[in-house]
């Protein structure tokens, strides 16, 4: 019989704990497929930020290190310097990477640390219960922006993929989404590319993944997907913002 679908090998036989309609599970699966694709399961070392992704080590059968909130890329720097032979990736949310950990993120990127970063942007603090994130859209209501985010009061949402693409140390920076089959294919390619860059030693690789959070958005799952398409993508355009080639560093 022909196998048309199988669970990635690096994933354990455990059901995800994520809320219905949340796309973290899908992001996990794409990363897992990329790890399988390169056959790097044993070399992989996950550095996990604080947020909904914190239990990644429950699902992935890879060596895992928990970082303090926001410090993922400082921790990853230490790991990669100590064990350059490992494939190091971080899995971080918007609060973790773009608020409390912004300095660590920008400087690790600028140093060109040879690690891969998977940044899940769902415009909200999920784990703590739906507070305003640095990526929260203008007008978006959260538990700490009850009148809707207003730029005079709360500033603008931050565009990480574009910002990091300006740094010399960054080898790859892209933004993807998971709403349509095409977007899913592009997301898979970008995640693979991020690992590829690290394997080739080209420097910092960054994939921002727009993701839904129906629970904290107070939405039905399908409406949440629609919101990603209709509200998030116009502000956070998809695409590859930087892609370094081997010839660029030689």
């Amino acid at each position: 019989m022909k196998v048309v679908y199988k669970k990635p090998e690096v994933l354990k036989n455990i059901n995800f704990h994520f809320c219905p309609g949340c796309q973290h599970g899908l992001v996990h699966k794409i990363i897992a497929e990329a790890i399988d694709n390169f056959g790097i399961k044993d070399r992989c070392l996950a550095v996990i930020g604080v947020g909904c992704g914190v239990f990644l080590y429950d699902y992935f059968d890879v060596d895992s290190l928990e970082a303090p909130h926001g410090r993922g890329l400082a921790v990853a720097t230490g790991v990669k310097r100590a064990r350059p032979e490992r494939i190091v990736f971080t899995y971080q949310g918007d609060g973790d990477l773009a608020a409390i950990g912004l300095a660590e993120t920008v400087h690790a990127a600028n140093r060109g640390e040879n690690v891969s970063v998977f940044f899940v942007n769902n415009t909200i603090y999920g784990m703590t219960g739906g507070q305003m994130a640095p990526t929260t859209l203008l007008g978006q209501i959260t538990t700490t922006s009850p009148y809707g985010r207003e730029f005079q009061r709360e500033g603008y949402p931050i565009r990480m993929a574009e910002m990091l693409a300006t740094l010399e140390g960054v080898a790859f920076s892209a933004r993807v989404a998971l709403c349509t089959p095409k977007q899913l294919m592009d997301a898979k390619k970008a995640v693979k590319k991020a690992f590829q860059m690290q394997i080739e030693g080209l420097g910092f690789s960054f994939v921002e993944i727009l993701s839904s959070c129906p629970t904290n958005w107070n939405m039905q799952s399908l409406d949440a997907i629609k919101r990603v398409e209709e509200e998030m993508i116009p502000f956070f355009p998809l695409g590859i913002y930087k892609e370094r080639r081997v010839s660029d560093v030689l």
């Binding site: 303090p68 410090r71 400082a74 310097r81 100590a82 300095a103």
Partner: peptide, 24 residues
């Protein structure tokens, strides 16, 4: 050995955390 000048005190102690987890 590896020497890194970090961007902050906060970053450097976490770099230690990462490197220490690797057994050095």
């Amino acid at each position: 050995g590896k020497f890194v000048q970090a961007e902050s005190e906060v970053a450097k102690i976490n770099m230690l955390l990462g490197a220490s987890a690797c057994g050095i």
